[in-house]
């Protein structure tokens, strides 16, 4: 026998479920950092890496370096730093790119022609709390100025430090352009891009359970 109270409860459930039919589905929201935390991240200066540091890492065959060209594929095919992989800015948040961009195995260095596009890309990644990304300061313009075509510092400004830097850059120029051999750019021969790291993601969800 069904009691009156049970009948009431069941009626309420059925009523609620009928209302539910007309309601919207629950859509998962992407996790985005709030503006305050993002501002803090942006103001931290640690995200920049200089062209000289990048050049040094490439010359030393540093296996932890992962260069990412955020320009369009056309620009990437025309010229790119050796070993760089191309992830255009509009594809940054694609699922398949996440293993490159959200990990702490490689030092990921984003670059574009200047600093701004790479900086924007960095900010977008930071807002999704992707870790371990850096921006090459000055981008390819600085790369050309400093590494591919370094100018000798003027004698009146020459210090020991500047000279050392110039000598390094001159060496890097030979390394990257192969200028002694033919003057042709060797940058078109792209070595294979490094493989995706295997990342064990930390759980960020709230944890709980039932009794």
């Amino acid at each position: 026998m069904m009691k009156r109270r049970e009948f009431l409860i069941i009626s309420l459930l059925v009523l609620g479920s009928i209302v539910s039919i007309f309601l919207n589905d629950i859509k998962p929201l992407p996790k985005i950092m709030d503006a305050k935390s993002l501002l803090y991240e942006v103001n931290k200066q640690g995200r920049y890496i200089s062209t000289d540091e990048v050049a040094k890492m490439i010359m030393e065959n540093d296996p932890s370096l992962l260069l990412i060209d955020v320009r369009s594929p056309e620009e990437y095919n025309k010229f790119s730093i050796q070993g760089a992989i191309n992830i255009p800015a509009d594809k940054l948040l694609d699922k398949k790119n996440r293993d490159y961009l959200d990990q702490d195995v490689y030092t990921t260095v984003l670059y574009s022609n200047g600093s701004s596009a790479a900086d924007e890309a960095w900010m977008m990644l930071a807002s999704y709390e992707y870790k371990g990304n850096k921006v090459m300061k000055g981008g390819l313009n600085a790369w050309y100025r400093n590494i591919l075509n370094p100018q000798k510092p003027k004698p009146e400004k020459l210090t020991a430090e500047l000279e050392k830097q110039y000598l390094f850059r001159k060496g890097a120029q030979i390394f990257f352009t192969g200028i002694q051999v033919s003057g042709a750019s060797s940058a078109n021969a792209k070595p294979k891009a490094p493989s995706k790291p295997i990342v064990k993601r930390k759980k960020k969800e709230v944890t709980g359970g039932c009794g």
Binding site: M2, I10, V14, S17, I18, S20, I21, F22, L23, D25
Partner: peptide, 22 residues
């Protein structure tokens, strides 16, 4: 299927199971 529709179907199943168990 829509989540609301699923809830409705599950409620129907629940009510039927109540009656059968009773």
């Amino acid at each position: 299927i829509k989540e609301g529709l699923f809830i409705f179907l599950l409620t129907i199943i629940t009510v039927i199971s109540f009656i059968v168990f009773q």
